[in-house]
Amino acid sequence: MPQFEIANFVPQLFWLAIFFAILYFAVVRPTLPKLGRVIDARETQVTGDLDTAANAKAQADRMASDYDEGVAAAQGDARARVVAAQASAAKQLEAKLAESNAVIAVRTAAAEADIAAARQHAMAEIEGVAADAAGDIVEKLTGTRPDPSQTATAARTALG
């Protein structure tokens, strides 16, 4: 086997040493660390981006909860205002109702008084007419006219 011929060792080892030295010092050492730096930079970038994303998410969550809180507060405020408005409207309505009731009561009382007066007046007139009519009737039946005070009393008793 040519592999075990000692004469082949020295030239192969010599060139191996030269080529491996070139490979290590002129090829691998100048190129590989560049790649290592890029890989490190990529890792930093990725972790940085992930942190930024996490921060942005936390901020968005905070904004969302702030918004929810704001909406809830506004809703509560609006509800309270509605309740207050309803209460004040009911109070105003009541006051107005009471006022108009009082006005109506006053007018009703006045109208009732007018009616009572009118009735009294009408009654007095009816009494007069009835007394006259009674006087006329008695005169025609008896030929004598009774005393007007007597007919008036009789009419009042009959009507009253």
């Binding site: 004469a7 082949n8 020295v10 030239p11 192969q12 010599f14 060139w15 191996l16 080529f19 070139i22 490979l23 002129a26 090829v27 691998v28 190129t31 590989l32």
Partner: peptide, 22 residues
């Protein structure tokens, strides 16, 4: 004896291929 042989040649070819790759 440090003759340039077919072994040396193919080590050189490997070196060049790796150098291009890297």
């Amino acid at each position: 004896d440090v003759s340039f042989t077919n072994s040396s040649t193919w080590m050189a070819v490997a070196l060049v291929a790796i150098a291009i790759f890297l």
